[in-house]
Amino acid sequence: MSAPAQRLIVDVDTGIDDSLALLYLLASPEAEILGIASTAGNVPVEQVAANNLNWLGLCRAPDIEVALGARVPLDCPLRTTEDTHGPQGIGYAVLPDSGRSVSGRDATTMWVELVREHPGEVTGLVTGPLTNLALAIRAEPELPRLLHRLVVMGGAYNHPGNTTPTTEWNVSVDPEAAKEVFDAFSGLPEGRRPILCGLDITETIEMTPDHVRRLAEAAGSVPAEVISPEDAPHIRSRTSNPVIRHLSDAIRFYMDFHRSHNQGFIAHMHDPFAAAVALNPDLARTRPATVDVELHGTLTRGTTVADWVGHWNREPNADIAVSTDPATFFDDLIDRVGRYAKSIG
């Protein structure tokens, strides 16, 4: 007998790597996406929702609920990052309009009502700022105990930041929300604590042009997909598979961004890795820690601070991913997304 589907609420600020995370989940037969919560982050929330709807349309996916969430953080102005993800959040890609519409309920309501409908069954995956989830916990303080599991792409623990010298993007956009969420999970036992996928591990997930080539090959897309740092910004993929074509255009923008920041012609695929961990926590080795967020430091606001050894005399409230095998992850991603794209044609 096959294992029951894993029910998911996916909360995203779609984004290039969020896009690939969404495709990974759509390609995973064990994943049942109950709803997609959109939040402002990489781009404004209306554009995030449009990206989600348009990816679903391109993939001919079922009519999954896409809800509009927070337009601004809890207590600070919104910052977006079009320089990293492109003017629409999906790099050089221009997705066809799906004609689909956003949900009649907002993301906070969706979070609360879905976990109440399926107590102990839902895995939450957050790959953007934690604003929507913080608001949902305000509305339903029992939400951390109603979830089966929470996986978050966020934070930097023993690693430099990617937004300031000490901060990771998702947490830095809304530090108050991150703190509220981490605090709300205090007191949960081992196995129920959030799994945090921070930069320490996600910056080992380096996608290269060869991964894109292999992905196109797995999809049966022709001609061979070769992306290069020599490609001019106006160049667009001509490979035959529409999912691979748009994904390649998105990823190449992300690689250009990383190269411009002296990191090589690669793309850190933070969010797809967190999506894989949501389905298979054994993919990463974790360590328990008590995590808090600095809100007031002049130079360190938004920094995630992990107490690994109990200096604060507080019980752990998170399990932090500390190691994985990137090659195994990419083999899995290429197989899943490639076969899925091939099935769409």
Rank of each mutant, 00 (worst) to 15 (best):
T14N: 12
I36G: 05
P189Q: 07
G120M: 10
D106A: 05
L34C: 04
R149F: 07
V102D: 01
A177D: 02
E65G: 13
A37E: 04
Q6G: 10
S98Q: 00
T328E: 14
V12P: 01
V277P: 00
S103T: 00
G155P: 05
G86K: 01
R301T: 12
D282K: 10
P160E: 10
L68P: 05
S2N: 11
G128H: 05
P272W: 09
E203G: 02
V212C: 06
M153W: 09
V322R: 06
L74W: 03
I251V: 15
K342N: 11
R238E: 13
A267N: 09
L23F: 10
F329V: 04
V102R: 08
A3I: 05
P223Q: 08
R116Q: 12
D13F: 01
W169G: 07
H159L: 10
H234E: 15
P4N: 13
R245T: 03
G124K: 01
Q6I: 14
E190F: 07
T163G: 09
H85M: 14
D200K: 05
P96L: 07
I201C: 03
M255F: 08
A232F: 12
S228V: 13
E217Y: 14
A306G: 00
G15I: 00
T81M: 15
H211G: 00
P4E: 05
A219F: 03
G35L: 04
V66N: 04
A216C: 10
I320K: 03
A134S: 04
A61W: 02
Y157M: 14
L23S: 07
F265M: 06
V322A: 06
L78I: 11
T84G: 06
H258W: 14
T167N: 08
M153T: 09
V112Y: 02
P242I: 10
R214Q: 12
Y254Q: 03
V309S: 14
P77M: 09
D271H: 15
I90Q: 05
G41S: 04
P62A: 14
L283V: 12
I137H: 00
D332V: 15
A274C: 01
T109F: 00
T80M: 10
S19M: 11
A224T: 15
V212W: 03
A275K: 03
V10G: 01
H85D: 12
P87I: 07
E190Q: 09
T298M: 11
S248N: 07
N280G: 10
